[in-house]
Amino acid sequence: MVEKFHGELRSLKRDVLEMGYLARDMLQRAVKALETRDVSMVESFDRDKKRLADQDHEIEQKCLRLIALYQPVAKDLRTIATALKMNTYLYRVGRYGKDIAVLVPDLVDTRDSGRLADIPLMADLTIGMITDALTAFEREDLSVIQDILEREEKVDALRYDILRESLDCMKDDGGSITWCTDCIMIARYLERCGDHACKIAEKVHYMVTGERIEIR
């Protein structure tokens, strides 16, 4: 019975990672589509969104079933609690990817689509944070997320840079309002994804050490 439980727990971790990589890839592809003006990159997003929702549902069910059947304790319980929370954070990350993807077809047609400001840089930082949070969860290794707060601060700073630049741009050129508003939205989505990476890092820290921390 114990073997079976631990096998199921390993399978749960694999499911969370699979969902995490899908959510991260949705975000990455949406930004890449903006950069490359390649709308075909976001064509599968309806399917991905459905897959993400299914994974969210399956992981939640699996967690509740493991708790009900095995009454796990200690690190086993912390792993399940972490999986349940990560599930929600990762779902949100994937949805922000979808929200960015929705903007892509209109944006690539505008005259301003070459001006992405620091969005690609911000996306790289955010995606790196999510990847490392997932790696920390997979390997139960906190060293890869030790500097996550500093990275989060850089993401925040970039968001305000983009906000300021976009406001200036809108003041100078009324025709750029649509584009700039979308940039502000995208920066906001990426900043939220960075927050979710931090929340995942907090939960992984709890899973590994039993200690609850607040990164910010």
Partner: peptide
């Protein structure tokens, strides 16, 4: 039951 100090307990 949430975070035992000793590995043996865990």
């Amino acid at each position: 039951f949430e975070d035992p100090a000793e590995e043996l307990t865990e």
